[in-house]
């Protein structure tokens, strides 16, 4: 993949009660989001620790989003 077509891999930690529900609703409404965003449902965005974000980078993601 060259730089002109670089599409970052994004990991999104989404709170079950809001951001994940919003993504679910988007799906229900047939609204698409890019496939390079991977969602991990968490019980609360406060659950996300620094170590989880670092592990994501270690495993090759380009960006991490914490949504809640």
């Amino acid at each position: 993949m060259n730089d002109a077509h670089f599409e970052p891999k994004i990991l999104a930690f989404c709170c079950r009660h809001c951001a994940y529900a919003a993504a679910d609703l988007a799906g229900g409404m047939r609204i698409q989001y890019p496939p390079n965003v991977r969602i991990v449902e968490v019980p609360c965005s406060g659950r996300v620790e620094v170590t989880e974000i670092l592990h994501a980078f270690e495993r090759g993601v380009d960006g991490v989003m914490v949504a809640g």
Binding site: V50, T51, L54, H55, F57
Partner: peptide
């Protein structure tokens, strides 16, 4: 434990 995890991750990267 938390700082160990963060430092270990930083060292690996």
């Amino acid at each position: 434990e938390k700082e160990v995890g963060i430092l270990a991750s930083a060292l690996r990267m």
